[in-house]
Design a protein around this nucleic acid. Structure first.
Lengths: 172, 172
DNA sequence: TGTTAATATGTCGTACACGAATGATTATTA
DNA sequence: TAATAATCATTCGTGTACGACATATTAACA
């Protein structure tokens, strides 16, 4: 072990990035626990609620894609949301394999109380940065995502626009 | 609230960054599971082994600080490592509250078989980037860590000296 | 028609990851 | 010395997060 009491050369960039990642992951977790203590809802639960709200109604698979989670993970999250009466599951009449997930009034009320900017305090901080800097950061993250091959990891359906999709008429 | 239904305009930078984060978190998890399948060891376990190796011997609290994890998390990881005979726990004779954790020969052997660059395939990719680009990415991540307040989240022992700026915007 | 494949959801076991509470040990202080 | 505080590791309960597998349903096909 190189003990150097005089100077400590900075760690290599790649190690620093890995280090930052672990800190970010931890910060997200800590924030989620604060949300849980304050609103009795966690970060992932809030993300899922937001996705359902944006779509009006969604299914397990779609939510998993948008949230970058596996379906089994989403099932657990939805179970808890259902238990807290934030969502309703209704079987699709056309394709009975699908379960359409809706928000309850209670969930709508909650989402008004917990503004999106609260999901992560980070959003506020980011928005206060000059546009150029935001872009630099966003590009850096996207490059890392690309370098990790995280794009091909199961979900590229995120684009919210989805101009046309005639192959499968949405139920609503 | 500006609704612009004309073009599929890219998502705001902050949302994109959050999105990237979720993808990165997932990629790290997926990679850990591949390691588990191939070497019967997970990413967090490898991180802890590396920390112990770098120090020759460490304690639960120290490992938790360096790995940006809570002590209770590290205890669980060490339990599994001990069960696999990768570490030994020995009570400190001077301060019997501490448990010194050592690597076994088996762990040394493992760490040779699993080179550090395999921890995350990311490392290889990063190292192939030009130095300047690495730095841009590292700085972007560090800024986000700072914006999230993740530095003050339980472990500031890691940074050695790093004569960076002391101008820390007082957010509290 | 029936058989097989594909899809959607759910169950199960494993491994993090955390805070709160507990017990053991050491340090501090009255 | 005795009471108290601080520290360290551990246990416990909750909530992700995953893949493998099981079940139900639909689609594709012979």
């Amino acid at each position: 072990m190189s003990n150097n009491p005089t100077i400590a050369e900075p760690l290599p960039n790649d190690i620093q990035i890995l280090n930052s990642m672990r800190q970010i992951i931890r910060a997200i977790d800590v924030h989620s626990r604060k949300l849980k203590a304050q609103y009795n809802i966690t970060g992932p639960q809030l993300i899922c609620l937001g996705i359902i709200q944006a779509s009006g109604s969604s299914t397990v698979t779609k939510i998993a894609h948008e949230a970058h989670l596996s379906t089994s993970t989403v099932v657990g999250i939805l179970d808890r949301l259902e238990h807290e009466a934030y969502i309703l599951r209704e079987r699709d009449r056309v394709d009975r394999r699908n379960w359409n997930v809706h928000l309850t009034d209670q969930a709508d009320h909650l989402l008004k109380m917990v503004p999106p900017s609260l999901h992560y305090g980070l959003l506020n901080a980011l928005q206060s940065l000059p546009e150029g800097e935001q872009e630099v950061i966003a590009n850096a993250f996207k490059r890392v995502v690309s370098l990790m091959g995280a794009e091909n990891l199961g979900t590229a359906l995120l684009q919210k626009i989805t101009p046309v999709d005639k192959s499968k008429p949405p139920s609503e």
